[in-house]
């Protein structure tokens, strides 16, 4: 569904086929359950989701989000762009002012939370009972889920602790945990049961590089088993490495939604030459058919179009006597796309 979503320009909210989803589910929950088998019901679908806080601030503005089942979905946006408010609405912690959201086709709000047994979540950092051990913390959260089988509790807790590498610190009180250990414990809590959807807000926050790698490979392996992962992060490298789809928020609005490739496609790759003869190089690039040729000091670059073979261009440069110090195609990073969509400004949106 959302795979068909186009990457659109800033400030235009994406209506990524959410309407047919909503009508399809209106047919009944049973239909929704049946439709899950072929993955036609999105793991997350919001339509016109909005939240205005009591102070009058519009934190989330008519958000239409569609996360297909099985996706590893990156959810990006500058600080204060409404990501966490959105996640809290998805989980029924905050009531939307307008619009609604469905997880696997079922509504979630403050009074209907049963679907959340299928969801593991890490929201705005972990939270624990400081006076309980790591294991006792997990036991408490597990006891809270009435679908969790008490008979398998100990085994599942052990497994979750192993998965996040906390096995040896299980009997330590949570108040003695380091930031990274707390983060791991929070992840363990999300992994207590096999989940269909993981909503992870900054999962690698506070982790050491080894921890980050482990968590990344954990996410990848969970996704390979069919778990949908909804990942909010500021680490764009991380998003680029693990995510198949992304959505970008800015000032409460969705400014872009699509696959990582599509998003990057919005930013053209550039063919760059570093040379002491910039004028000659610019001329040759233009002759070869390069468009948007720009010269900045010793650096000359142009759009790297498909028909512009780098090897041919390089040979032409050398043949024309241009002294080439460096030559290459610069692929735009997700960061470039992100900054292009959300602006350079450093100050948070008010």
């Amino acid at each position: 569904m959302s795979t068909g979503a186009e990457v659109v320009g800033a400030a235009a909210p994406v209506a990524a086929g959410v309407t047919p989803v909503a009508t399809g589910v209106a047919g009944g929950v049973k239909a929704g359950v049946a439709a899950q088998a072929d993955g036609s019901v999105p793991a997350i679908a919001t339509s016109g989701l909005s939240k205005r806080f009591r102070g009058g601030q519009l934190a989330v503005d008519t958000l239409d989000l569609a996360v297909p089942q099985g996706a590893v979905f990156g959810f990006l946006g500058p600080n204060g762009s409404g990501k966490t408010t959105t996640i809290r609405m998805l989980l029924g912690l905050i009531t939307p002012t307008a619009g609604g959201c469905r997880l696997f086709g079922e509504t979630v709000d403050a009074s209907r939370v049963s679907t959340l047994t299928r969801v593991g979540a890490l929201i705005e950092g972990p939270a624990h009972y400081p006076y309980l051990t790591g294991r006792a913390n997990l036991a408490r959260y597990d006891a809270a889920d009435r679908t969790a089988d008490p008979a398998t509790r100990a085994r599942r807790i052990d497994r979750a602790l192993e998965q996040v590498g906390l096995g040896s610190a299980a009997e330590k009180k949570a108040k003695n945990y380091s930031l990274g250990m707390k983060q791991r414990l929070g992840l363990a809590c999300a992994l207590l049961q096999p989940r269909d959807l993981l909503i992870l807000d900054e999962p690698t926050n506070g982790l050491d590089p080894q921890g980050m790698r482990e968590i990344r490979s954990l996410i990848t392996s969970l996704a390979a088993q069919g778990t949908t992962v909804f990942l909010s992060s500021h680490l764009l490298d991380e998003i680029e490495q693990v995510c198949t789809d992304v959505a970008i928020m800015s000032r409460g609005r969705l400014v872009s939604q699509g696959s990582v490739t599509q998003l990057r496609a919005g930013q053209r790759a550039r063919l760059t030459v570093t040379t002491p003869d910039p004028a000659d190089a610019a001329r040759v690039l233009a002759e070869q058919g390069g468009t948007d040729v720009q010269v900045a000091g010793h650096r000359v670059d142009c759009d790297a179009r498909e028909d512009l073979a780098p090897d041919v261009v390089c040979a032409a440069l050398v043949a024309s006597g241009v002294r080439v110090l460096a030559f290459g195609v610069e692929r735009p990073s997700l960061e470039d796309a992100f900054v292009a969509l959300t602006g350079e400004g450093f100050d948070v949106a008010g």
Partner: peptide
């Protein structure tokens, strides 16, 4: 205040429960 309320609610525990 310690943030565990949100994790209990998404565990999930119904608010009435």
């Amino acid at each position: 205040s310690q943030g565990t309320l949100r994790y209990l609610l998404v565990a999930p525990v119904g608010r009435i429960r």
